[in-house]
Design a protein around this nucleic acid. Structure first.
Length: 296
DNA sequence: CAGTGTCAAGGTGGA
DNA sequence: TCCACCTTGACACTG
């Protein structure tokens, strides 16, 4: 089990997801932004390796507007060597990588244009990981998408389109159970229809699930095949007093220990979706230190 | 320079 | 039919 956090390091003093307004787009702006983002990403990864944090989600904003028609800038060529260098560091340090395109990426949409943009966005994510030379254990996670008033038709569209995805995307794509529309049960059904691996989100499952965590973890784990790496799992806890589903500001040690206990017997890489990022991840590492699954 | 309205993109659900 | 919400920081404009 490796432990990590998504996208942002709050203490390091730089961001790997700096962006700008579409109106400000220029090749010069792209050049300086992507260069700064990659340099910060390298710094975050060095920080993580030095702190036994060996799971990291790379921000989708690494290359702003990468899948937008406005972007004609050849960032892949211009920064190819930088990507390869970062990839070598990731492999040398045994770091696991994920990416998570956001809510606009919907492969089960009934709208052709939304689908076209979504595929372009997924291809961008795959390019980032490919340029780094990472194998298929580096994954791209998305939610299943909308229901559109007809769940079975929406799931059928997902299945058909998954089968027709570009190979570079399909070899990395995993679906994650969400807190409202697609539970672990729905994701398992999609797995049985098309073979897409399922990333288990413990916090969403608590809100929209029902089954005990050990059993749920075992189900999700059964969808990860050799070459995919060990399963990935997202963990968070409820922010006290907030709407159900709001991520906590900082880790709840008690809740986290309980999670470790409940998940005993299952190995996975664990992403802490908690707002204060590396601070809580460090606490999680401390809590997991004696666990025989933990890889420092 | 500080304050603040707004930002590429979708879908849901309540008013 | 419209708008807030998701989630979030920070860009970039205004005064």
């Amino acid at each position: 089990m490796r432990i990590g956090y998504p996208c942002i390091n709050r203490g390091i003093g730089c961001s790997s997801g700096r962006t700008f307004r579409l109106r400000s787009y220029s090749e010069a702006r792209m050049e300086t932004t992507v260069e700064a983002n990659l340099s910060c990403l390298a710094a975050i990864l060095r920080y993580n390796a030095a702190h036994s944090l060996r799971f990291f989600r790379i921000t989708s904003d690494l290359v702003p507007f990468a899948s937008h028609p406005v972007c004609r800038y050849p960032w892949q060529r211009r920064f190819g060597e930088v990507f390869r260098e970062i990839g070598r560091f990731i492999q040398r340090e045994g770091i696991r990588i994920s990416m998570h395109p956001d809510q606009f990426t919907l492969i089960n949409t009934p709208d052709r244009e939304v689908l076209r943009r979504s595929l372009a966005e997924l291809e961008y994510h795959a390019q980032v990981l490919d340029l780094m030379g990472l194998d298929a254990t580096a994954r791209i996670q998305i939610h299943v998408g909308g229901v559109y008033g007809d769940r079975s038709a929406a799931m059928e569209r997902f299945t058909a389109r998954y089968g027709r995805l570009d190979g570079a995307v399909r070899r990395r794509l995993v679906i994650e159970n969400d807190d409202r529309l697609y539970s672990l049960g729905h994701c398992m059904e999609l797995y049985s229809r098309c073979g897409v691996p399922v990333l288990f989100d413990w916090f969403h499952h608590r809100i929209n699930g029902g089954e005990p965590p050990g059993r749920a973890l075992a189900k999700a784990a059964s969808t990860w095949k050799s070459g995919n790496g060990i399963p990935m799992c997202d963990y968070s806890s409820q922010k006290p007093g907030a709407r159900a589903g709001t991520h906590a500001e900082s880790i709840d040690r008690e809740d986290f220990r309980a999670f470790l206990d409940m998940s005993r017997g299952h190995d996975f890489d664990l992403m802490l979706e908690i707002k204060d990022k590396e601070a809580s991840a460090a606490v999680a590492v401390e809590e997991a230190w004696g666990d025989d699954r933990f890889v420092p």
